[in-house]
């Protein structure tokens, strides 16, 4: 009897825990959405205000999220190119379908993994730094000091991050795709696959649809904006104590990974719908 009661209590506590976490997650997304709308309104109403202060902050963010992570992105995307072509070559050679190497690269790297890799690298490299910087400013009442001198904290802290991170993720996505495509050909060349550079890049060009470029820009931009809002939400948008900052950073990184996967899934579903439609 005691065992059953304990088991029931445990299962109930699991339900409680799951429910509490889901409610907290939904509350977080709602807060993020609110922050996004406020940021949009500030972006529209104050776009010309203090440009000589805000522009350097945007470029600092581009540097942080779009330039500094370039070496690690090049390294990872080169490995990605090797892995994709390395795995594909075995089957395409057996099937005599080497002509589809470029198509595979477009499907896997350009449409899926390139933007995802760039967003995850930005999240890891710039994410924790951002949450710590913003959280420290919030915990030490710098936000109130900023308001007291008439500076809107959203304009100063959030807008540059949103714009800079969107641009940064887009730039990194381009670098990642170029590196993966080149390393893919290098692997094919080393494996003695009888394919000329012109044929390989021709396959890539044929596999690319004009919509791919639009989707790529849109996807990397949305990933950048979402990550920036998430980081600002955890660091800035709610009261935080100094000792809670590391926990907030971990929460932001975890939720960031989930959001990247969700955004990727939405784009995948949309691309299936557009392919299936007559």
């Amino acid at each position: 009897m005691t065992d059953i009661a304990a088991r029931e209590r445990r299962s109930l506590s699991i339900f409680h825990w799951t429910g509490r976490e889901v409610v907290r997650l939904l509350g977080g997304f709602r807060g993020m959405l609110s922050l996004g709308l406020i940021t949009l309104s500030v972006l529209l109403t104050q776009r010309r205000r203090a440009s000589k202060v805000i522009s350097p902050l945007i470029w600092r963010e581009v540097l942080r999220s779009g330039v500094r992570p370039v070496p690690i992105v090049l390294f990872l995307s080169s490995l990605l190119g090797l892995a994709v072509i390395g795995q594909t070559v075995v089957f395409t050679t057996r099937l005599g379908a080497q002509d589809y190497l470029g198509t595979v690269m477009v499907m896997v790297v350009v449409r899926e993994l390139g933007p995802m890799l760039a967003a995850l690298v930005v999240l890891v490299r710039a994410g924790s730094e951002s949450v710590i910087e913003l959280g420290s400013a919030r915990a030490s009442h710098e936000i109130e000091a900023m308001e007291a001198i008439g500076i809107d904290p959203i304009h100063y802290w959030v807008v540059p991050r949103v714009l800079g991170m969107a641009l940064g993720v887009f730039c990194l996505t381009v670098y990642a795709i170029v590196a993966a495509v080149l390393s893919g050909y290098l692997w094919a060349f080393l494996q003695n696959i009888p394919i000329l550079p012109g044929d390989y890049f021709g396959q890539l060009a044929r596999a690319l649809h004009p919509l791919d470029f639009l989707a790529l820009g849109l996807k990397s931009g949305i990933l950048g904006v979402t990550l920036a809002l998430l980081l600002c939400y955890h660091g800035l948008a709610q009261p935080i104590r100094r000792e809670d900052i590391p926990r907030a950073a971990i929460r932001a990184l975890t939720q960031g990974v989930v959001l990247c996967v969700l955004i990727d899934a939405v784009f995948l579903a949309l691309s299936r719908i557009s392919l299936d439609s007559p």
Binding site: A50, K52, V53, E133, A137, S140, E142, A145, I149, G150
Partner: peptide
Amino acid sequence: LLFAHLSVAENVALPLQYHHNVS
């Protein structure tokens, strides 16, 4: 309550920079 990411001079100059849009 100075801004930790700025130098002393940048802290002092910030209100002027922001409200008069100067570098």
